[in-house]
Design a protein around this nucleic acid. Structure first.
Lengths: 106, 106
DNA sequence: CAGTATCCGTGAAGATACTG
DNA sequence: CAGTATCTTCACGGATACTG
């Protein structure tokens, strides 16, 4: 019966599973601007380790929130961009950002 | 200089620090309905351990998102309710819930 | 430039038993 | 009924070194 119980999860819970980690919201937020090269994106997240960056972006890819574009050139060039699913978070991310700003004031 | 760097954090990051854990959004979401007794609230979160419930609610209290109301009776009666800060998350929580529902479909 | 591999510490989270 | 106290586990996340 545990299987059944595990299926009956709150949508909110499901949402947090997709974006409720340390770096995911930040990555998605920066991608709202448009496609960005891998290295540039990483520079925008000053304290992220290389490992966490790759891991985070891979999970976002797997969940179809981010798309990976590889240019067959040397040296390698890779860009990341939001998918439609990813963009559907735009308002939420901006609201959260605004809310965070309010909270920082008080 | 690390001190300075640590102060320059993204508001979104700050927001996730406040509510970006496994149970916090869920607890806040259930409290949108109004004040709830401790035991009842916990029942709404089927798979939460006693420890995590207390820990989660304590942190929300500390951050002034949730208020604790103790009735001096025997046996003990405790209620939790959202503060104004807590309620300011209403739209975001509902949006996230709706978004999660969409994601579950596809 | 972009990504992988490995090692390792810390803390999140669970299980259990207990108190006022 | 509400909450505390331990003990334990394990995955998150960081540092470093390496490949195509």
């Amino acid at each position: 019966m545990d299987e059944i119980k595990n299926r009956i999860i709150c949508p909110l819970d499901f949402a947090m599973k997709l974006i409720g980690t340390k770096w995911k919201p930040l990555v998605l937020f920066h991608l709202l601007e448009g496609p960005v090269r891998s290295g540039v994106l990483q520079k925008h997240l000053p304290d992220i380790s290389n490992k966490m960056f790759t891991q985070t972006i891979r999970e976002l890819e797997k969940d179809n929130l981010v798309e990976r574009i590889v240019y067959p050139v040397v040296p390698p060039k890779v860009e990341y961009k939001l998918t439609k699913k990813g963009y559907s978070l735009e308002n939420i991310l901006k609201s959260l950002d605004a809310w965070g700003l309010e909270m920082m004031k008080t």
